[in-house]
Amino acid sequence: MAAVAAQPLTTPVQRATAVTAWHARSYRRTWRATITTAFLNPVFFLVSVGVLLGKLIDDQQAALGGLSYVEFVAPALVATTAMQVGTNDGMFPVMAGIRWLRTYHAVLATPVRVAELVLGAMAWSVIRMLVAATIFTAVAALGGAIDSPLAIFAPFAALLCGLAFHAPLAAFTSSPMLEDGSGGWFPAINRFVIIPMFLFSGTFFPVSQLPDWLEPVAWATPLWHGIELCRDLCTGSVELVATLAHVGYLGAFVAVGAALAVRFHERTLLK
């Protein structure tokens, strides 16, 4: 029997952290490209729609639950900011790691296990989402669009929302279905899933404005729950039952998505 040297194995957390550190290091080279989607676009929307368009419709406050229009829109943009980051990170880095640059294969040649690889990558996205949502919340608060102290929790609610996109998309991207590695699905997901959700899940108007048959569809989207959570926190009107329901709904997306992502990464990478 060839004796195994007493070289101690690292713990799962140490290995997942090493994966997170790798993503952070790569990000030092690519951060410029992410500034627009993660930081500038939300602020542009806040100013153009929230402030400037909002001035024209501020007499509609009853429909907005007594809020000014910018107060209505700003919390939603906290959630959508995290959604954008989570969507991006669930697709491109995963596809690059598995098929384009094949860097995930290098990671799995080491003691790092698949779950550690997936969760380590997700942890890096968590940091990005928290930073993006916090900066946006601060900008909106400084501009007077948010004034409840509970808003300091809004980035965490947004994070949950972002993960509800990241995890299922990471599962989708790693699934054997995308074996050809074309990434041709990504623009379609953006056009037919992400943008419609952004426009119709309560970001710019209450979903009660939707036709009756469409309103339940909006309730089913994870973004609506994320927006509701952020809006409740930013306006200081938190109700326990509603909050638990939103958190539970988003948590289910994250849990199922992450479990499937690990499963599909395994199936694709460890054949």
């Binding site: 090493a18 994966v19 080279r29 094949r102 860097t103 290098a106 040649a109």
Partner: peptide
């Protein structure tokens, strides 16, 4: 491996550093 699995964004040294961390 048969196909390169290096991280092209990183430097030569960083590729070794990142990899070495996976072994603790």
């Amino acid at each position: 491996p048969q196909q390169d699995t290096l991280d092209f964004e990183l430097t030569v040294y960083e590729n070794i550093l990142v990899y070495g961390r996976y072994f603790g």
